[in-house]
């Protein structure tokens, strides 16, 4: 059934290309990309984050992420820090929403406290990295407006303007690979002054469950500060069969310990 919908959308995207405005075409590509990733249900993955400053000095963080797919609303995710040692066990639980701000809780293992935190700070860096919170939250179609820019072979570039005025960007230029399930190949981020701020490239893609493309490496380069953050994903597991109970505040405390 999903395959049928997918091909229907594909026909809609390319069949009616001439009748559409760039906005309609952009939106349809974003929807096709979302559709191509529907049905993964839940996943777990280990992430090694390497921060590199402009002098080339590096520092590392290890985290584990669990994701639970929801279609009527945004996904739920649980992130646990395993290193550096002084923050080991610190964990966050996020309920993303298609509309409105996300709900987020932070677990502090030293005093076992769960704190509801504001998700207002979208543009701020995630743990000192070049990734902003908004770059790592689940990508919902409703969070942007779209404009088709160009298609070169199998690569399609779409401009995405964040709906939320608290976003740190005026626009993002996203390059999709339409032959590979509309996976993203590259994102360029333009800051509030509309100058190029960061470039994110995806590499070492693998196909899981014959449907879901996941990049093994995310490389975010800040073009203004010359700092860089690399995320390396290992041990993707789509068979964890997580349930909504694995994303409760009780589960957050259990994960952090």
């Amino acid at each position: 059934m999903k395959k049928i919908i997918l091909s229907f959308v594909a026909i809609a995207v390319f069949g009616s290309a001439f009748a559409q405005s760039p906005e309609e075409k952009g939106l349809e590509i974003a929807k096709a990309a979302e559709l191509a990733d529907i049905g993964f249900k839940s996943s777990t993955v280990n992430i090694k984050m390497t921060l590199k400053n402009k002098n080339g000095q590096t520092s590392e963080r290890l985290l584990t992420t669990k994701t639970f797919e929801l279609n009527e609303d945004g996904d739920k995710s649980l992130i646990v820090f395993n290193s550096p040692r002084d923050v080991k066990g610190t964990a966050t639980l996020t309920f993303t929403h298609k509309k409105g701000s996300d709900d987020q809780w932070l677990f502090l293992p030293s005093i076992k406290r769960v704190k509801r935190i504001s998700s207002n700070n979208k543009s701020g860096p995630f743990v000192g990295s070049e990734f902003a919170y908004e770059d790592l939250s689940s990508q919902e179609v409703e969070k942007y407006t779209y404009k088709f820019i160009e298609a070169k072979g199998n690569l399609i570039t779409v401009e995405q303007d964040p709906v939320d005025p608290k976003s740190g960007y005026t626009r993002r230029l996203v390059t999709y690979n339409k032959d590979k399930g509309y996976r993203m190949e590259k994102v360029e981020f333009y800051d509030r002054k509309n100058s190029l701020l960061k470039t994110l490239t995806y590499s070492e893609y693998k196909l899981y469950k014959n449907k879901f493309w996941r990049a093994g490496v995310f490389k975010m380069s800040n073009k203004q500060s010359n700092k860089q953050t690399t995320l390396e994903f290992t041990e993707y597991d789509f068979d964890a069969e997580l349930t909504e109970e694995d994303f409760s505040q009780t589960a957050l405390k259990r994960a952090g310990k």
Binding site: S118, N120, N121, S123, G124, P125, G128, G168
Partner: peptide, 9 residues
């Protein structure tokens, strides 16, 4: 919280 006030976190 005034967040990310210097665009540097």
């Amino acid at each position: 919280t005034f967040s990310n006030i210097d665009s540097n976190g």
